[in-house]
């Protein structure tokens, strides 16, 4: 997977989200898809849900915990990056509203980033 080493200073939030998602998809073969969730997010915040088939199924009740994955790019933190990992079954439950996403997150207008062959 060819991924740019850096991003343009004026990269859009979605472009930045795609760049981060591509890196994560490249490093973990068990990562199925990354969903970018722009609805309701502050302007400088990237919210990602990563669906990973290797996670232990631990019957979590949610809401899911997001972790701060913000990175400096060329000395600047362009966006705050928050990532929540879920299993495929948990993702299915989230879409059916049987489980809740991290507090304040919305699945509306989500954008899926997959591997090149599954785009």
């Amino acid at each position: 997977m060819q991924i740019a080493e850096t991003v343009a200073p004026d990269v859009s939030r979605e472009g930045f989200a795609h760049w981060i998602a591509s890196q994560h998809l490249d490093i973990d073969s068990n990562l199925v898809v990354v969903y970018y969730l722009p609805t309701g997010a502050p302007a400088r915040e990237v919210r990602l849900i990563e669906v990973n088939q290797s996670l232990a199924l631990s019957n979590r009740a949610g809401p899911f915990e997001a972790l701060d994955f913000s990175v400096d790019v060329d000395g600047l933190e362009r966006f705050t990056v928050l990532v929540a990992e879920v299993t495929p079954s948990e993702w299915e439950a989230l879409t059916k509203k049987e489980l809740a996403p991290p507090c304040g997150w919305s699945l509306e207008s989500r954008v899926a980033f997959g591997r090149p062959e599954t785009d």
Binding site: H24, L55, E65, F69, S70
Partner: peptide, 25 residues
């Protein structure tokens, strides 16, 4: 994660793989 905007919660154990993924960038 303690010095980020998302300090670890009570009782969770799934941080290391996330950390390794983060480190890769």
């Amino acid at each position: 994660f303690w010095d980020t905007s998302t300090p670890p919660g009570d009782g969770g154990h799934r941080y290391f793989v996330s950390f390794m993924t983060y480190v890769s960038g």
